[in-house]
Design a protein around this nucleic acid. Sequence first.
DNA 1: TCATAAAAGGACCCTGCTATCCTTTTATAA
DNA 2: TTATAAAAGGATAGCAGGGTCCTTTTATGA
Lengths: 146, 146
Amino acid sequence: MLAKSTEYAIRALVYVQLKNWEGKRPGVVEIAREIEAPEAFSAKILQTLTRHQLLDSAKGRGGGFFFNDEQTELSLYKIIHVMEGDGCFHRCGFGLKSCNNNNPCPLHDQYKVVRDSFYDIVRKESIQSLSEKIKKGEAVLKRSIT
Amino acid sequence: MLAKSTEYAIRALVYVQLKNWEGKRPGVVEIAREIEAPEAFSAKILQTLTRHQLLDSAKGRGGGFFFNDEQTELSLYKIIHVMEGDGCFHRCGFGLKSCNNNNPCPLHDQYKVVRDSFYDIVRKESIQSLSEKIKKGEAVLKRSIT
DNA sequence: TCATAAAAGGACCCTGCTATCCTTTTATAA
DNA sequence: TTATAAAAGGATAGCAGGGTCCTTTTATGA
Ligand code: FES
Ligand code: FES
């Protein structure tokens, strides 16, 4: 499972992408409201993302957050890496100090499959691909109904 | 990923099973040493497990931890459930308040597969099945080499 | 019967993740 | 050129998970 801050980060970036496609640059207050995350915390997270250049921002009047047009697809993996590191893709599911094919724990064979599948997902999926689905109405950014 | 306390719990129970098969009832100090976990913390975890009757214990001289002979297989799921709840098998990977097939988040289809695979593993694997692998030398309880 | 070995239990501490608040910097529109 | 809108940044609070310590209870074998 991803850390809460990582989930907020991904949802925030998806929202920014959707607004950018409409030619808009949302600010912290709007983003926090739309992804249902605390405002001040969202600000911190967006700051982290821009500091690591996964996102651009403009200060002052008319400012906000946006993706540089030059920018290629932004994979979920990159976001996870910046927000919480990539330990979860390497660690042993049984809690041993490291995961090792040649000296496996009793969960290794099965756990590795699951861990690698998740890794594949976050390498392949991106802010753009997720946003597409939402734009097409195939998925939602927040729950209308419970 | 499992909580650290859950990992300790699983490793501790596997060690107890292995010793039980040798006709022995290990105590906290020995268990903690063998699973490479802090002693006092291991005691707390073993206490939780016996309180929930996943494990039996005997106080006083010659006491220690053991599985009741009547007892059937103990699935990893039961342990996870007692140690940290089963939220991780239901939660939305994208951070929405709930996971819902009819109102999916953009990760749902792919995330669900991974989450369900992990669920299947912990339902099928048990302390006994993991211990078997170690007994047969197919897997290890701790790392000899890095 | 009593010294001792062992688990049970309660109180507490520490760290890292989550979250808030307030000040500073920057850009722009009026 | 100045008032204002906005992000950046620093300091700090809150809290849960991880971890420790000490006391109490219980059983046993010497
Ligand atoms: S050794 Fe445990 S998951 Fe690889
Ligand atoms: S709705 Fe997000 S994982 Fe199911």
